[in-house]
Design a protein around this nucleic acid. Structure first.
Lengths: 196, 196
DNA sequence: GCTAACTCGAACAGAGGTGTTCGACAAGAG
DNA sequence: CTCTTGTCGAACACCTCTGTTCGAGTTAGC
């Protein structure tokens, strides 16, 4: 985690160039080497090591930035009102984020320890969790399964959709609708009709 | 793909020992080296290369064997009668298989080309697909989403459950029930009540 | 324009992996 | 019992990647 403040202007520019290049490379190949990343950033390998002590630290920084950006984008989503509609809105904004950064997650999983991955996923998960609990209180989401599990289902289905799109078996246009229909049904309390 | 027939007895024994050891090692570490696997199999590295031309070929063989065994185990499941109950039975038998071999899948994904992974997943997928279509015809499963997508949801949720168990957030005892409740709801046609 | 911060290429050391060759040795098949 | 098949350890060549060092050159800041 390089300190961008107090550094010279070109140094700061290089840091962001490296982060951009790393993100691009890691998406293409989760095992991209430091040489590849430095070359893509049009920067010497030595310069890269001047800003990031190790490859692991670089991957961590890329992942942290991606999570922060996703958090920022998702904060704009209105989660008030009917919980089911709010869930639909959250999905519509989330799935593209997941689709874009899923290869980055793969790269992170290969280099960062599992606790770190989980640690960085905590904040985004809280958003889903609180929405889930609000919907439960309103009687539109099920109570018979653990909240942890339902949150996991949310993310699992989103990632699964991204994989299906990547494999060409799901059209990106229809993805949001399919995910929404699936998750709304999965969250519906037993006995209640599935919304359609 | 070493030919086990026509080989000497000890050679055949070694091949299975290598496959067993490889499976065990790859589950522990998806990047396990050939040296590790050979040592675990109590076999010289040269002997291993005598049976498998490359590490990739070995991983492929391990994966093929795991898939075949899973196929065999799942063939014992009765998929006749009510489609929802059949789905429940299939889940009960499937999730443990998935849980055991998910690390193997990770290892395969790191070394085998994506087409190969997909190719080997085709047969198991057919089973789910035909059950899905039977349930659709009977009116108990939804028609408003692509069959491909629903099959993908099936596998995604199973793998997600395995991950949750691995992370200690889901009790293995309750897993089958949670998966079944989730998937039955996800497969329920819009307007129909969620079974419980 | 002077200085400190930064960059760069080349080269280094070290680790760890793959796949091969060699020669001596053991074990199954007939 | 013989002979083919298989096994074994050690060593080899080769590769790729990481992280570091050096000295010379460049750029921003004031």
């Amino acid at each position: 985690m390089p300190v961008t403040t107090g550094k010279r202007a070109d140094a700061q520019r290089n840091v962001t160039a490296i982060l951009d290049a790393a993100a691009a490379c890691l998406v293409r190949d989760p095992d991209a080497s430091v040489s590849d990343i430095a070359a893509a950033a049009r920067v010497g390998r030595v310069t890269l090591y001047g800003h990031f002590a190790s490859r692991t630290e670089l991957v961590d920084a890329v992942f942290v930035r991606a999570v922060a950006r996703a958090h920022e984008a998702l904060d704009a989503v209105d989660l008030t009102g009917d919980a089911r509609q709010a869930l639909a809105r959250l999905i519509a904004s989330s799935w593209q984020v997941v689709d874009e950064s899923r290869m980055l997650l793969v790269a992170a999983q290969r280099t960062l320890p599992p606790e770190r991955i989980r640690e960085l996923h905590e904040h985004p998960m809280r958003r889903v969790r609180s929405l889930l609990e609000r919907g439960r209180a309103a009687g539109v989401f099920r109570f018979d399964l653990p909240a942890d599990w339902l949150v996991a289902v949310f993310y699992t289905v989103l990632h699964g959709a991204a994989d299906e799109i990547g494999a060409g078996r799901l059209a990106p246009e229809g993805a949001a609708d399919a995910i929404t229909a699936t998750l709304l049904a999965a969250f519906t309390p037993p006995g209640a009709p599935v919304p359609g």
